[in-house]
Design a protein around this nucleic acid. Structure first.
Length: 538
DNA sequence: CTTAGGTTGCCCGG
DNA sequence: CCGGGCAACCTAAG
C-alpha cells in the first residue's frame, strides 16, 4: 500500500487500543485513518413498548455501557492524535458511503462470527472488493479461529468441551508478546459532507435517564477493563486457585468472579491479552487449577461456544437446529412474565431476576438457577423466551455464549441430565443461609426471619405481619409448587427425549403438537401446573 | 452391544 | 466440607 492512502477503521466490538490488529494495520503506512463507529438503529432505536427502558434488543444498562466504552475509546484515540467519528444509520450503508466519500483505500475491522455481522460484513466486503478497496478483517475477538477448528474437525464443530480442547491446543500467539500499546495514529482526514457527531448521551439517543438505584454499578470502557483486570490478577493465589463451581453466586458486594465478561463482550478487553496475563501468573505459581474450572478455562468456554455457534445453522433456535432436542415447551406468557418481572414467589429466583434488571449481571450459577427454573425445572417455558430476556438485559450478553448456555440449561443440547434440577430453595440457602442477597435485591423481605426467607409462604401469619410482608399481598405466593412442577417437567422431558430418539432428529411441528396433546391427556390432575397454581393462589 | 465420560443436583451422614 | 447414594440422561468410542 502506497504512502498517502487513507484507511477506515470500523469499530463494532473490539472497542480498545491494546491488541487490536485491525487498528494496527489501519495505522500502518496510511497518511490518514478514519476511526468510525456507527450507531445502529437495529440495536439502539428506543422502544417505548419494551418491558423495561431501552431498545427492543438492548436494555438501557447495556446501551449506557456501550456509550461509556465509546467515550473512553474516543479519549484514547485523541491521546494518539486521532478521534472517534460517530455516525448513525444502517451500518452497511453508512460504511459504504464513507468509503466512497473519503476515497478510502483500505478498510479494517475485526472479524465477527455473529450471524448479524456475518451478513452485514459480506455486503460491505462485496462492495469493497468490487471498488478495489483492500479489506483487512483479522480474528482477534476470540483466542482461536472458529473456522479453523471446525475445519480441523472435519467440517463440524466439536460438541464437548474436552474435544474442543484437544482440537484447539495452544493458541498460535501464546508465546509471542501481543502489541498492547500504540504510540501514535495518523490524523483523521477530511470528513467531507458525512454527518459526524460526538459520542451521544443516552438522552440524545432518545432515552429517559433512570435512577442510579436502577442502573448497573459496572462502567464501560477499555480503561475500566484494564483497571479491573489488574485488580483481578493482583491476588495471585486467587487466580491460581480459582474454581468456577466453588464461587458463591450470592456474593454481590464483592462478586466471586472477575466480572470481566461485559468488557470481553464489547472487546474493551482482549481475550488474548487476558489469557497471556493469566498464564504469566500461572508461571510463577507452584500449582494452579485447570480447565474447565480455572480462569483460563472460562476463556476457553467462551471460545467453545463461539465455535459451536459459528458452525451450527440455526444455533439460536429450536427448529432447524441439528444439535437441539425438539421439546414441546409451553407458551405460557403469564408464567414468563412472572419470571421476567421477579414475581415467581420464590425469593431466590426473584432476587436474581432483580439483579439482572438492575445490574445487567449475575453470577454464572445464579443464571443457571433462573434458566433451569424457567425451562426444564419448573415452568417449562421455551428457552428461546428466556434467552431473549437475558440477551436484552445482560450487559455481557453475547450471542454465542447466551444461546449456548440456554441450550445447555434447558437440556436441549450439550447436557441431558434433566433429573438434576436446581432447587429454588436449597441452592441459594447453602451459600447464603441468612438470605442477605435476597434482603438486598428484594427489600420487601428484608425483615423476614432467616428460617422462612427462602420459602416465605410457610411463615406463620404472625411472623409475616411482624416482618411487614404478607404473602399474597406484599409479596406473591409461588406461581407453581416446586415439588409437583419438577415431576411434571421430568415426565415431559422423558417423553420428549423418547420422541427425539424414535424419530432420530426429524421431529416435525405436527409430532410436537401430538406429544403436547398426549402429555395433557396423561396429566395427573393433582400435579397439574395450572391446578397447582390455583391451589396456591386461591 | 457395552462402557466411559460429561463444567456446576439434592440429600444425608460423618 | 467431603463422599456416597439416589436416579439416571445422552453421546461417542470401541
Amino acid at each position: 500500500m502506497a504512502s498517502g492512502s487513507s484507511s477506515l477503521m470500523w469499530f463494532r466490538k473490539g472497542l480498545r487500543i491494546h491488541d487490536n490488529p485491525a487498528l494496527q494495520h489501519a495505522a500502518k503506512e496510511s497518511n490518514c485513518v478514519y476511526p468510525v463507529f456507527v450507531i445502529d438503529p437495529y440495536f439502539m432505536e428506543p422502544d417505548p413498548n419494551a418491558f423495561s427502558p431501552g431498545s427492543s434488543r438492548a436494555g438501557l444498562n447495556r446501551i449506557r455501557f456501550l456509550l461509556e466504552s465509546l467515550v473512553d475509546l474516543d479519549s484514547s484515540l485523541r491521546q494518539l492524535g486521532s478521534r472517534l467519528l460517530v455516525l448513525k444509520g444502517d451500518p452497511g450503508e453508512v460504511i459504504i458511503r464513507c468509503l466512497k466519500e473519503w476515497e478510502v483505500k483500505r478498510l479494517c475491522f475485526e472479524y465477527d462470527t455473529d450471524p448479524y455481522y456475518q451478513a452485514l460484513d459480506i455486503k460491505v466486503k462485496n462492495y469493497a472488493s468490487a471498488a478495489g478497496i483492500e479489506v483487512f478483517s483479522p480474528v482477534s475477538h476470540t483466542l482461536f479461529d472458529s473456522a479453523e477448528i471446525i475445519q480441523k474437525n472435519g467440517g463440524r464443530p466439536p460438541l464437548s468441551y474436552q474435544s474442543f480442547l484437544k482440537l484447539a491446543g495452544q493458541p498460535s500467539w501464546a508465546s509471542s508478546p501481543l502489541l498492547t500499546t500504540l504510540s501514535w495514529l495518523p490524523p483523521v482526514g477530511d470528513v467531507g459532507t458525512c454527518e459526524i457527531s460526538n459520542v451521544p448521551t443516552v438522552k440524545e439517543l432518545g432515552y429517559e435517564e433512570i435512577g442510579q438505584d436502577e442502573s448497573t454499578p459496572f462502567k464501560g470502557g477499555e480503561s475500566e477493563a484494564l483497571k479491573r483486570l489488574r485488580e483481578s490478577i493482583r491476588d495471585k493465589e486467587w487466580v491460581a486457585n480459582f474454581e468456577k463451581p466453588k464461587g458463591d453466586p450470592s456474593a454481590f458486594l464483592k462478586p466471586a468472579t472477575t466480572v470481566l465478561s461485559p468488557y470481553l463482550k464489547f472487546g474493551c478487553l482482549s481475550s488474548r491479552y487476558f489469557y497471556q496475563c493469566l498464564t504469566d501468573v500461572y508461571k510463577n505459581m507452584k500449582w494452579h487449577t485447570s480447565p474447565p474450572v480455572s480462569l483460563v478455562g472460562q476463556l476457553l468456554w467462551r471460545d467453545f461456544f463461539y465455535t459451536v455457534g459459528f458452525g451450527t445453522p440455526n444455533f439460536d433456535r429450536m427448529k432447524g437446529n441439528r444439535i437441539c432436542k425438539q421439546i414441546p415447551w409451553n407458551d405460557d406468557d403469564e408464567l414468563l412474565a412472572a419470571w421476567r418481572e421477579a414475581r415467581t414467589g420464590y425469593p431466590w429466583i426473584d432476587a436474581i431476576m432483580v439483579q439482572l434488571r438492575k445490574w445487567g449481571w449475575m453470577h454464572h450459577l445464579a443464571r443457571h438457577c433462573v434458566a433451569c427454573f424457567l425451562t426444564r425445572g419448573d415452568l417449562f417455558v421455551h428457552w428461546e423466551k428466556g434467552r431473549d430476556v437475558f440477551e436484552r438485559l445482560l450487559i455481557d450478553s453475547d450471542w454465542a455464549i447466551n444461546n449456548g448456555n440456554w441450550l445447555w440449561l434447558s437440556c436441549s443440547s450439550f447436557f441431558y441430565q434433566y433429573n438434576r434440577i436446581y432447587s429454588p430453595i436449597s441452592f441459594g440457602k447453602k451459600y447464603d443461609p441468612n438470605g442477605n442477597y435476597i434482603r438486598h435485591f428484594l427489600p420487601i423481605l428484608k425483615d423476614m426471619p432467616k428460617e422462612y426467607i427462602y420459602e416465605p409462604w410457610t411463615a406463620p401469619p404472625s411472623i409475616q405481619a411482624k416482618a411487614k410482608c404478607i404473602i399474597g399481598k406484599d409479596y406473591p405466593k409461588p406461581v407453581v409448587c416446586h415439588d409437583s412442577a419438577i415431576k411434571e417437567c421430568k415426565r415431559k422431558l422423558a417423553e420428549a427425549y423418547a420422541l427425539n430418539k424414535r424419530l432420530d432428529g426429524s421431529v416435525t411441528e405436527e409430532d410436537l403438537k401430538k406429544l403436547r396433546r398426549k402429555l395433557e391427556e396423561d396429566e395427573n390432575p393433582e400435579s397439574n401446573t395450572s391446578r397447582t397454581r390455583q391451589k396456591l393462589i386461591g
